[in-house]
Structure formats: structure tokens, C-alpha cells
């Protein structure tokens, strides 16, 4: 049986922060990550996004609790990650990538680690620091976000065995692909709505007769 399906991953995701290249390669070669650990990381990321939205300090937070919508948060965190994984997998078959869907999923989820840290860091610091001091937090968050993008690019490069230009091309095409998928989902929802209204009208018509 493939090691990726095993319960426990044998690599610490925090290692990505100081040994990114080793970790990404060992994820591919030694299959150190597991679906289970990856899913936990993804869940942590989603939760940290929600926490950031709800518990961000008053000084930095201009949105109100009554305006909070958990579906929107899920749509921009969980849904986006899954959409990226699926789209990238679909495209890598066209662009001669070597990676399987499991590999992409595991490594993208492991790459979320700096994002999780940045969200938690932001939540704590926004409750402790004043408006003037917060500039440094913004800087650190930007650095962590860039770090995340670099990690994703690097792990895609390793998984698919690409050159760097091809990786960047692959990532850009993936983003376009995500937009297309999003558009199709939107169309589908609208069509379903139409269909629903159509049948609902028929039912009302029959009942009124």
C-alpha cells in the first residue's frame, strides 16, 4: 500500500519554515506526508481564518460580528485550496506533470503552514498592539504570505519535475483555470435556479387548477 494513504505523516510541517527544500523533496521522494496530516493542516488553516475574522482586535477590525458570514470565509480559504488542487491536477496532465492528485494535495496543504502561523500571529498581535505599532505585523504577514507563494511554487516544481519557468507558467494557467471553473460553477448554480423556478411554477400551476 502507498505510504501517502497511511494514517500518520512522519515529517514535522514546521520543518518547512527552516528547511523548505529538504522537506518538499522528502515529501515527494520518501512520501513522508500523509493525507490525514494534510487534512488536519487544511482544517487548521480554515479555523485560523475564521478566528482571524472573529477575534481580530478592535483597532484593526472594521467589520462587525453581525456581518460575519462563515460561508464567505470557507469560500475564500477551504474552497480556494481545493479548487487549486483540482485545477492544478487537471492541468498537470496536459503539461506533462508527474504529480498525482494526492501529492499535490499533500504538499499544498503542508505549504499552508506559514499562512496558519501568520493568521494566528495577526490575531494575537492585533489585540495587543496599538495602531502605530501594527506596521511591523503587517510587514511580517506580507513576508509570510510571500513565503507561502514561494513554497507552493517550489513544491509544484518538485512534484511535477518542472523547470522554474514552466512552474510559473503552470501556476498562472492554474489561476486562469480556477477562474473558469468558478465561472462554470456560477453558471451551473444560475441554471439550477432557473430549473427550480421552472418546476416550482409547474407545481403551482397544477395545484391551482
Amino acid at each position: 500500500m502507498d505510504k501517502s494513504f497511511s494514517f500518520k505523516g512522519t515529517i514535522n510541517p514546521l520543518k518547512l519554515l527552516n528547511h523548505p527544500i529538504d522537506t518538499v523533496e522528502s515529501l515527494k521522494e520518501k512520501k513522508n506526508g500523509s493525507i490525514f496530516s494534510a487534512t488536519i493542516l487544511l482544517a487548521l488553516f480554515t479555523v485560523s481564518e475564521i478566528i482571524l475574522d472573529v477575534a481580530k482586535g478592535f483597532i484593526q477590525n472594521t467589520s462587525r460580528v453581525q456581518d460575519f458570514n462563515v460561508i464567505m470565509v470557507l469560500a475564500r480559504s477551504l474552497f480556494m485550496v481545493l479548487l487549486f488542487v483540482v485545477t492544478n491536477w487537471g492541468l498537470c496532465t496536459l503539461l506533462d506533470g508527474e504529480g498525482r492528485m494526492i501529492d499535490i494535495y499533500i504538499s499544498v496543504c503542508y505549504c499552508l503552514t506559514p499562512l496558519i502561523i501568520s493568521r494566528i500571529f495577526e490575531t494575537i498581535m492585533s489585540n495587543v498592539l496599538t495602531a502605530d505599532e501594527y506596521v511591523f505585523v503587517d510587514m511580517i504577514v506580507v513576508v509570510l504570505n510571500i513565503w507561502f507563494v514561494c513554497l507552493v511554487l517550489f513544491s509544484l516544481k518538485t512534484i511535477h519535475n518542472y523547470t522554474l519557468p514552466k512552474t510559473i507558467f503552470n501556476a498562472l494557467v492554474t489561476i486562469v483555470g480556477m477562474a473558469i471553473v468558478f465561472f462554470i460553477i456560477f453558471l451551473f448554480v444560475v441554471l439550477m435556479q432557473q430549473l427550480y423556478i421552472f418546476f416550482a411554477t409547474i407545481v403551482t400551476e397544477l395545484m391551482m387548477r
Binding site: 478592535f58 483597532i59 472594521t62 495587543v128 496599538t130 495602531a131 502605530d132
Partner: peptide
């Protein structure tokens, strides 16, 4: 300041409170 949504003055008061 929180009731008035005045974040700038809130931050100033918070600094001294802290």
C-alpha cells in the same frame, strides 16, 4: 471610543491603558 467607532482615539487610550 469603541461605541463611537473611533479607532484612532481608541488606540491612543489603549496605549496608555496597556
Amino acid at each position: 471610543f469603541k461605541l463611537a467607532n473611533d479607532r484612532e482615539n481608541y488606540s491612543r487610550a489603549y496605549e496608555l491603558y496597556r
